[in-house]
Design a binder for these strands. Structure first.
Lengths: 340, 340
DNA sequence: ACTGGCACTCTGTCCGCGCGAGTGCCAGTC
DNA sequence: GACTGGCACTCGCGCGGACAGAGTGCCAGT
């Protein structure tokens, strides 16, 4: 049995009402609040069908209906219209992002902005090293046998690592190392560097090889293995919004999930399609987030994507509004990065 | 009326039982669980006095007693013995901190360790810039009119900022700038730098003065104003431990407070006395944290203190254990920093 | 100074009840 | 055939009373 237009309309009404009131919605109140042009009894029949198809369910016999994950899915895919941002929101975004002085600042401002606008938990991934190029590598002597390696990426990220050298290295040698390393690696995509690093060691004169090998190890760690991504998080207090009603009674599992960077990255960091992605309830495949939805998208200067950002909230969330906000913020951040 | 030894013993017993069971403790169960050598009736009299003095209170008439903030205070100051760490905990600390590769890593591992050991929310402040010295300043050309300024502090912190120059500057000039800046500032305490920065501009030849002035502005921001401290946070999920019982029903205010870096810094960042500090309930002067206690201490290589760390939990917390753990972790972190 | 006993108070819980919202179904109507 | 009005039914929820249990304060006695 396929769903005709009115049934879809009923589903949309249920989702909208439920999101707003947080209470199971019944047939009578539904026809009162929306111009469906039919009687409650008819709506009831439609509801029965929608329930059979798995889009809505009753918390208890003889209570109103509540959308299921599948119901939200259908709503997001086919029923919701994009909600344009209010001018006030646009202004808020602009005001908030102006005046950011460096990458850290941009990321922090963005994540707070997102949390504030969506009134949900916001996550912003730092520009991914895997998608960055090396802009410059700097070697700073700390002591005779220690160097600080500083890598500056074109996305603005700066990573540093301490290098323990096998023996004392004179200042001139450091200068030489710095030159060689930069000649070889500057401008390269991080992903392409490993063979080049190996080349660096091979090209070295034997007496310096040990030093270079040391440096190479740390370089590889910094450039590749350690490309473990960084994140910023804000708005956890928003989880307490809907009372304890959302998240089936306890925030525990959600807070736990939010502490795991790996999990968050999986949620927002899957950057393949450049479009906005919505994961509803079970769809995000993480037990702790059974009753949470994630709206995420990629961002970057121009069309390239260097990182992800998104928000997490109860499945019962204002999808159209959230999607619009996430998109808008991502676009503004992209523009901001493009200016650098 | 002063409190004799037995009354203090009763208070200690009440605190210990309440912390453990989370339930108001009555006179009968008290004599059962502790060898007080007197009858419940006697204990009741003592309790009446303790209540009069404000150390305990009854949630409702005819319920057991619960310690007040003042009760916990007295307990912490005079009644609790330091609880030595278990060998397992010592091992956990060592294992956890070994293998940290850089400052970020140290801080993150520490904060997670603290959260795990105390089963509470942990906060670690990055080594304060205000207490650091400049180790090296690096200028990296990004474009002809842009420099990246990277400051490396002796505590391992690395700060970067973008400098917009008034006009194109040739590479040689950058080298010169770098040399001058380092000659003047390297090795100086950050707090002492402002006059030196001014000197840098004054000493400059007129044609380069505009550039140097630009750089100086950013330097000052980076070195002083922007000494806004950084923090790491972990273990928020532990807030949900005692059910919703702690924190009078809602985590909301606590989560909100935890999002405010300023507030957290005030809590753990007051580094004057090098001893461990315990702030109980109202004592921390923040409305949102009325029902929370904070145990914090400073850490640093050797005897100097470069930052603070601590944990936050319900006033009903295991003070002796928490204090011991916080101290131990701070000492280990200090040792770790000293090695650099 | 401590103790045993007693009356009292209060909370939490369980039960039963009635209300109201909401449903499913069915017969009737357009 | 699709929609509607009506009706009986089901449940969750809130309310009030009764009850058990824990804990107290007080007092007289040792």
């Amino acid at each position: 049995m396929s769903l005709d237009d009115r049934k879809l309309e009923v589903l949309r009404a249920i989702v909208e009402d439920y999101v707003e009131t947080q209470e199971p919605v019944g047939s009578k109140s539904l026809v009162e609040r929306h111009q469906l042009g039919v009687s409650p009894a008819t709506v009831r029949n439609d509801m029965a069908v929608l329930e059979e198809e798995g889009y809505i369910r009753q918390p208890h016999t003889s209570a109103g209906r509540v959308p299921t994950d599948a119901g939200y899915r259908l709503f997001v895919d086919r029923l919701s219209k994009v909600k344009p941002l209010s001018p006030a929101e646009r202004r808020a975004i602009e005001r908030f992002l102006i005046g950011a002085v460096d990458l850290d600042d941009v990321v922090h401002r963005t994540v707070r902005l997102l949390a504030q606008l969506t009134r949900q938990v916001a996550v912003v991934q730092y520009p991914s090293l895997a998608r960055s190029s090396v802009r410059h590598l700097e070697l700073v002597p700390i002591s005779t046998t220690r160097l600080m390696l500083v890598m500056i990426a074109d996305t603005g990220r700066v990573e540093q690592r301490l290098v323990e050298l096998p023996g004392p290295v004179p200042a001139d040698d450091v200068t030489d190392l710095r030159r060689r390393v930069n000649e070889k690696l500057a401008g390269q995509k991080l992903a392409d560097t490993p063979p080049l690093v190996q080349g660096l060691v091979d090209d070295c004169s034997p007496d310096r090889r040990a030093t270079m090998a040391c440096l190479a190890t740390v370089l590889l760690e910094t450039l590749v293995e350690r490309s473990e991504e960084r994140l910023a998080l804000a708005g956890t207090a928003n989880l307490t919004r809907g009372g304890v009603l959302d998240f089936q009674g306890t925030l525990r599992p959600v807070l736990e999930a939010l502490e795991e960077e790996v999990i968050l990255l999986k949620l927002i960091g899957d950057l393949e399609p450049s479009t906005t992605r919505v994961r509803i309830g079970d769809e995000n495949k993480i037990d702790n987030l059974r009753s949470a939805s994630v709206v995420s998208t990629g961002y970057g200067p121009g069309v390239t994507i260097v990182g992800g950002l998104g928000v997490l909230g109860p499945t019962r969330m204002d999808y159209p509004g959230t999607i619009a906000t996430v998109r808008a913020v991502a676009r503004y951040v992209g523009d901001l990065l493009a200016q650098n």
